[in-house]
Nucleic acid binder design. Structure first.
Lengths: 351, 351
DNA sequence: TTGTAAGCGTTATCAA
DNA sequence: TTGATAACGCTTACAA
């Protein structure tokens, strides 16, 4: 066997192009050409070199290559909340597409924190990614200026800033909140609690707008106490409801008959709290989610929610990014995808 | 403003150490020293250089740095099924820890495919990751030989090969299946369907062993038809059950009274099929899961399952890996974590 | 068709 | 305390 050539147990030198060159008795440029299938290489020599490279278990140093040609076949994914199942489908489909074409992805989480986001962007820049897909903390921030100034290929998801030549793929949170609220009203709900995200987040602003728009549409009064800002997590949804009913008495429940949540995770928190308090969904309380994460159809009762096309966002986002990176398409793409209501069993028809 | 220095809109040259050197009127070594806080640098000069670097929005080229010192502060994570929510808790905690210490992670999925896994390993090697955490396709494969031969710092999760100086953190699937089956038997179930994974997977072998061990323990007959091999997905669990009851008649249901699933995703598939067919869980059929993924407590009925410490696995795995990378600890770590039964409402007590 | 050499952006060694 | 230089592994003019 050729294993004695291959043996790396002794602290031998790295197996690089130069090493292969020495073993094959050619120059490193010839090896490089052979390895890359450069037609300028003699077929016979190339085959011999290739064989030796294989025997030696050669693999290229992509840092060196990246340093030289300023391409790393690496994409950065910067998200805001890796804990949220919302993103899993998107990540999965992006990974599949990238894997197919020998790209890889660096994944990180900004946790809705501008400082962290900045750090992540700089890491991506430093590590030489060819582009990023980012769910930004906010649509107006120095971080976005940074991305632009550095000319980093970027596709925004979730929500996005607006400027010349921007690329984004997301749904309209305003529209989502609007159709959700419209549906609740159509079902006879007139007092709707909005479980919104932190007010400084763009997504919360948008969501609130849609909610207000719908109320206005139906000349319903806006009740301040019915708009709650909270973190976008299960735990927060749970706490928000528990806080409203500290006494475990459904005393003031007639204050509102439905809850609209910015995200299914909040809705699941509402389920949890309701169970503890003893509210029956949807009889005592109707719940409307947003995102349609996979598990919502298995909740009891199955959650009525607004479906966001997470897979499509991933597919389109990465396609746009790759087209741009590989120079196939330098156009700006602004894509707002449709959202749709998924009617299940968590909203009671009062009419 | 200093913005005219910073302007990068014209296709200017890269802002690198050399550039900063020129602007500051010192050599690149001095800049490098300043940037790295090397005490050999004059404090005053260093401060001036740092200020200029900041003004110029300098960020280091980590490819060059990595090429030079063979450290990239990048970790590879190679998993088998990014679609399975099981992994996200682990990923999340790893990401958090890495983010804290300015490491990043390259994430990829091998899909239980040895060829893909090999490709992923080579990518990691080529991209110069400092180490990997891998859920291997199999515990005996050329891929593992490759990892070893290349001396890549590795921690195995999920299951692991056994050799000198190996590192792993996982639970015993055999034990998990054993205590699950024991519990079912204790509840009075004597005929238990095993929804197992593909037979060539190590995890399936282990799981089967635990199941058989428990049956043997209680002198229960092994019924061949009660051991089903299937993909580890919701859809497969669904299909397996549907296939057993094509006529939608619970005719042969008395054939078994409980199903033990290798993974909660299979169990959810069983839920779905049962609902369609009209079986009531646990009255018509008891279901036992494995993993205790987050959503199982929200199923209806809440799923009785075996808890796997996914967060702990991530924490320990990355700690061991980092200790090794940074030379703090070169010992081999073989960690088998405990599993525990989470009793909820999907298993009927027949006794 | 092949080889030589320069350069990608860092850092460490050495000399000044 | 600083600067010149070589090296990390790769690719591509350019020359042979």
């Amino acid at each position: 066997m050729s294993s004695k050539n291959v043996d790396k147990t002794q602290k031998s030198e790295n197996i690089d192009i130069k090493y292969i060159a020495r073993v094959s008795g050619v120059s490193s440029s010839t090896v490089s050409r052979a390895l890359r299938g450069d037609p300028a290489a003699n077929k016979k020599t190339a085959d011999r070199v290739l064989k030796i490279a294989k025997e030696l278990n050669y693999y290229p140093n992509l840092l060196a290559k990246g340093l030289r040609d300023k391409k790393t076949k690496t994409i950065g994914i910067i998200l805001n909340d890796l804990k949220n199942p919302l993103y899993y489908e998107t990540i999965k489909v992006i990974e599949e597409i990238l894997n197919d074409i020998d790209y890889s992805m660096i994944l990180c989480d900004s946790n809705f924190d501008l400082r962290l986001e900045r750090k992540n962007i700089i890491t991506m820049l430093s590590k030489g990614v060819d582009g990023i897909i980012i769910s930004p903390v906010n649509i107006e921030s120095e971080n976005i200026d940074l991305i632009r100034k550095q000319g980093l290929n970027t596709v925004y998801i979730d929500f996005a800033p607006e400027f010349e030549n921007v690329n984004y793929v997301h749904v309209s949170h305003e529209h989502a909140a609007f159709i959700a609220t419209e549906y609740l009203i159509r079902c006879g709900h007139k007092k709707i609690l909005l479980l919104n995200g932190p007010s400084q987040l763009s997504v919360s602003e948008d969501f609130l707008k849609g909610y207000l728009q719908s109320l206005k549409n139906h000349k319903l009064k806006v009740i301040k106490q019915h708009i709650i800002s909270t973190e976008l997590s299960l735990e927060s949804g749970y706490k928000a409801i528990k806080k409203l009913f500290p006494s475990k008495e459904p005393g003031n429940l007639n204050d509102f008959t439905a809850v609209l949540c910015l995200g299914d995770m909040l809705a699941i928190g509402v389920y949890k709290a309701s169970k503890e308090i003893g509210f029956k969904i949807p009889d005592d309380l109707s719940v409307m989610g947003y995102d349609n994460i996979f598990m919502t159809s298995y909740l009891s009762p199955p959650l009525t929610t607004i479906h966001a096309p997470k897979i499509r966002i991933g597919e389109l986002g990465i396609k746009i990014l790759l087209d741009r990176i590989e120079g196939r398409d330098k156009e700006s793409h602004r894509i707002i995808l449709d959202v749709r209501l998924v009617e299940r069993e968590s909203v009671k028809k009062l009419t």
